[in-house]
Write a protein that binds this DNA or RNA. Structure first.
Length: 576
DNA sequence: GCCGTTTTCGGCCCGACTGTTTTCAGTCG
């Protein structure tokens, strides 16, 4: 039983109770508990075993008992009772945007509607109009909502969306009368997937800003257009919202529109306790505005240090801020190199020199060129001769390069038995060895765990690449006992990769945070196969920041010399 | 159902927008 299943049950229950018109604060308690469980890095089974479930914020005695019941029986009596009273089709129609629990209740009570298909049919026939609180307009809105639901694109990987967001922000800075402009929303928090692009600007002439915005080349359609908020859709169906506020509200609005919603709620609650009201226009004591122009000012008025956007998820950052124990997060500017890049030697498209030139343009000092190992034939895995040639070329390059240095590495296949794809003599000659699973995804949890742990136990393996193997929106990671892997990695001083390739982001934010508690350190690698993909390093840094990691916990912050010493150091743990 | 330097009872985040209403309820972010 995973915590996600517990959360799903609580969320379902909240929706059913909403339809039944139960107490809103009880409903909110279930929703808050679900969020809170999702955001906790602790293992829910462990907490239950230690009878410490009430340590989760928002979980009291009552809900702790319910979680225990779910863990013990797989379900919950009260949940089963609710399901008897609320048919599943009724939950389905709640997914229609603009249609909430109150309306759903009326639709079911009066017409017995139990699904989107039935709802659509009756709306088309004009048979909803005479229900209490529903007229022609609401009927139209329901039909529009159903169409929207069908066309709604899934959330997209951050890396697919970020470049467009940055482009629009740059365009506004250049061409529109704005004094400040920034990305906001989940894209600014560096969430791994993004539903739409939120942008905030301040200006004394919002009309001109909106005119400029709606005429930008990527814009295909204007959805709504107002003085403070305009929404457009791009040619490939992505929504961009631009909000324009006066300069004195910019900081408060940036906090508000960056979110997350849960973080905002927490911050406002904090304000209420000291008699302050927080909204998108500022922080107010009575009618007097006490802060609002900058985010720093807003946090300061609430007695908080600046909380970086990547942390604003209500995962304990507000409490940590109050107690003065917010970590100083690793910054992109501190990243000195990329630990995982593919070259022409295997399936990458760039030469060693091109990789080094790109690194120089990015302000990096070193790059580990880690091509595939020999058995991964589909990806041009290197046989020992090719590997020797590559090593020679890298040595020659380094001898002639005053600034950027290359490390000769390999992304070595981990076999089904946990064995490695090159013999030790060859591994010993490499600067960096990243061990990876690309085959045998369907092995049992025990086998996968053993494979990864055995890899950490090699004196020559420095990094476990993309530890879960998941691809965002395409496939889940393989079954593996990650906590056992973290423990093995910590004991053997093996680093865990934050693979920054846009569909991987593996480990993810929560797992980074959990792993870091065991003392593990991390290596960020872009996994670039094309030169421009080295820019994914920024995504990996975002994941590290969302995982609350400091510069000391990320080995990419080391100089070339420091890194070389660290990598050689693992062998000394293994007496001959 | 949770929670506590105003409280173990009585509160529980805030505002915009829409559509249905003559002053407000529902929904959303």
């Amino acid at each position: 039983m995973k915590k996600s299943e517990v959360c799903a049950i609580f969320r379902d229950m909240a929706e059913m109770m909403e339809i039944l018109g139960e107490d809103v604060y009880r409903i909110r308690a279930y929703q808050r508990a679900a969020r809170s469980i999702e955001n906790t890095s602790a293992d829910i089974m462990d907490l239950a075993a230690r009878r410490e479930l009430t340590k989760i914020p928002g979980v009291g005695r009552e809900l702790a008992g319910k979680i225990e019941e779910i863990l013990a029986t797989g379900t919950l009596r009260k949940y089963e009772e609710l399901k008897e009273r609320v048919p599943p089709g009724l939950l389905e129609i709640l997914r229609v945007p603009g249609l909430g629990p109150k309306t759903a209740r009326v639709l079911h009570g009066e017409l017995g509607i139990e699904g989107i298909a039935a709802l659509e049919g009756l709306a088309r026939e004009g048979r909803l109009k005479d229900l209490p609180g529903i007229k022609a307009k609401t009927e139209e809105n329901i039909l529009r909502g159903i169409a929207l639901l069908r066309s709604a694109e899934e959330r997209r990987p951050l890396g697919m969306v970020l470049p467009l967001g940055q482009l629009v922000v740059e365009a506004l800075k250049e061409g529109a009368p704005v004094s400040r402009v920034s990305l906001a929303g989940s894209i600014r928090r560096c969430r791994e997937t993004v539903g739409d692009i939120d942008i905030l600007a301040s200006s004394g002439d919002p009309e001109k800003v909106m005119d400029f915005f709606t005429r930008l080349p990527p814009v295909a359609e204007i959805i709504t257009r107002g003085a403070t908020r305009t929404s457009v859709r791009t040619k490939d169906g992505l929504q961009i919202d631009l909000r324009v506020v006066p300069d004195e509200s910019y900081g408060a609005a940036l906090c508000y529109f960056t979110g997350s919603k849960e973080h905002n709620i927490r911050v406002r609650e904090l304000g209420v306790r000291s008699g302050l009201k927080v909204n998108e226009y500022g922080v107010f004591r009575g009618k007097k505005r006490v802060a609002g122009a900058t985010e720093e000012e807003v946090f300061d008025a609430l007695g908080l240090p600046f909380i970086p956007p990547e942390m604003r998820e209500d995962r304990g950052e507000v409490e940590a801020g109050l107690e003065g124990r917010l970590p100083r997060l690793v910054e992109l500017g501190e990243i000195k190199g990329d630990l995982h890049v593919h070259s022409k030697y295997s399936d990458g498209s760039a030469s060693l020199r091109e990789i080094a030139d790109k690194a120089r343009r990015m302000g990096l000092q070193w790059v580990a060129v880690c091509d595939h190992s020999r058995s991964l034939k589909v990806a041009g895995g290197l046989d020992p001769a090719a590997l020797a040639k590559k090593k020679q070329e890298i040595e020659a390059f380094n001898a002639g390069s005053k600034d950027v240095k290359l490390l000769c590495g390999s992304e070595v296949e981990i076999g089904l038995d946990g064995g490695l794809d090159y013999p030790d003599e060859i591994l010993a000659g490499l600067d960096v060895v990243i061990a990876a699973i690309h085959t045998g995804f369907r092995q049992s949890r025990e086998i996968q765990t053993r494979r990864l742990i055995k890899a950490t136990q090699s004196p020559y393996v420095h990094v476990i690449a993309h530890p879960t193997g998941r691809l965002i929106g395409e496939r889940d990671g393989y079954a593996v006992d990650l906590e056992a892997v973290y423990k093995a990695a910590a004991e053997t001083r093996t680093f865990l990769e934050i693979n920054a390739w846009y569909k991987r982001l593996d480990l993810n934010d929560l797992e980074c945070r959990k792993a870091s508690e065991t003392g593990v350190k991390f290596s960020i690698g872009s996994d670039a196969h094309l030169l421009n993909q080295m820019d994914f390093l920024a995504l990996g840094t975002g994941v590290a920041r969302r995982g609350w990691l400091t510069a000391r916990q990320v080995i990419n912050t080391l100089s070339h010399r420091e890194l070389a010493v660290l990598l050689k150091g693992k062998r000394s743990l293994f007496p001959k």
